[in-house]
Amino acid sequence: MLCACICSHSDGRQRGWRPGPALGGVNQVFESVAKKYDVMNDSMTLGIHRVWKDILVHKMNPCPGTLLLDVAGGTGDIAFRFINYIRSARERQLQRKLRQHQNLSWQEISESYQEEQFKPLGDSQVVVCDINKEMLKVGKQKAQYLGYSEGLSWVLGNAEELPFDDDKFDVYTIAFGIRNVTRMDLALQEAYRVLKPGGRFLCLEFSHVSNPIISRLYDLYSFQVIPVLGEVIAGDWKSYQYLVESIRRFPPQEELKAMIEDAGFFKVDYQNLNSGIVAIHSGFKL
């Protein structure tokens, strides 16, 4: 099962990694799929992409005050989950605080809840950075419709040359986007640059299936079903054919792990989901 998550940028050229289309070609792909992005994701994965993204945010386990950079995240899927997670964490903090002070008056309890409602994210913020204007447009529309505004900003930018200062963010995430950058080595170096010492890198991406039976079924589904769904739902066979091909060109788990280490990250590991259909890679800037 696949996901239309071909979120922004282009591809990389080391350790056997074969580049995909140039930046302009990838941008055209994203402009083509942006409006049907959510429908295609749900159709092609039977909604499982939502679970994968939930797992990514739970693995991140952000605490109130976290500053997150979500790259290639134009449609806001990770950003909205981050905000929900922080809101829940803040609510749990408040409840623990109130339980520890049983002698508080009703007025003091009420004031505490009013303060929480006024600033539900505390100092937490998420910056969504994407190179594609259409994907950002979709994300902003979703944020407005769903009521997300506080602690959320949108930036047009390239993963290979991020428009941010050094040592700025606590966490860097990229979900279904890194395989589409032109130079993956530069994107990883930029991720390292903008993270604070102690900051965490998290990458959710399609990967390589280890089970040969599942792999054969996966290939059949990918090449025979995905482009057809793209044509029927989005009227776009070509973009979804590119999606499948870009996944097959992507480095396997151990190779990507080595590339992340080459960029300077420590304690790099990965977690396979659904037999390796996708994997979450994690590393720290120490």
Results as ranks from 00 to 15, higher is better:
125 Q>L: 05
71 V>A: 02
67 L>N: 12
39 V>M: 04
100 Q>T: 10
97 K>R: 07
104 L>N: 03
57 V>H: 06
80 F>A: 07
96 R>N: 14
83 I>L: 06
122 G>M: 09
99 R>I: 08
50 R>Y: 03
48 I>L: 13
36 K>C: 01
73 G>P: 03
67 L>E: 15
40 M>F: 00
70 D>T: 10
69 L>W: 11
35 K>G: 00
86 I>A: 02
52 W>L: 02
127 V>F: 12
80 F>R: 12
94 L>S: 14
65 G>L: 01
114 Q>W: 04
111 E>H: 13
122 G>S: 13
58 H>G: 09
84 N>R: 08
49 H>E: 00
36 K>R: 11
63 C>G: 14
120 P>C: 09
92 R>I: 12
32 S>I: 05
73 G>M: 03
67 L>A: 13
62 P>L: 11
49 H>N: 10
51 V>Q: 04
74 G>T: 02
85 Y>F: 10
56 L>M: 06
104 L>R: 13
126 V>T: 10
103 N>M: 06
85 Y>G: 03
65 G>P: 01
76 G>Y: 11
47 G>Y: 12
30 F>L: 10
50 R>F: 06
118 F>Q: 09
94 L>E: 13
73 G>A: 11
81 R>A: 01
37 Y>F: 14
132 N>Q: 10
107 Q>R: 08
61 N>G: 10
63 C>W: 07
64 P>A: 15
98 L>H: 12
101 H>D: 12
68 L>I: 10
34 A>N: 06
78 I>R: 01
92 R>S: 12
118 F>T: 05
77 D>F: 02
30 F>W: 05
69 L>R: 13
124 S>N: 08
39 V>F: 03
110 S>Q: 11
130 D>Q: 14
126 V>G: 15
116 E>G: 07
125 Q>H: 11
132 N>E: 12
115 E>R: 13
55 I>G: 09
92 R>Y: 14
108 E>S: 09
118 F>G: 05
116 E>T: 12
82 F>V: 04
78 I>V: 13
51 V>P: 02
89 A>K: 11
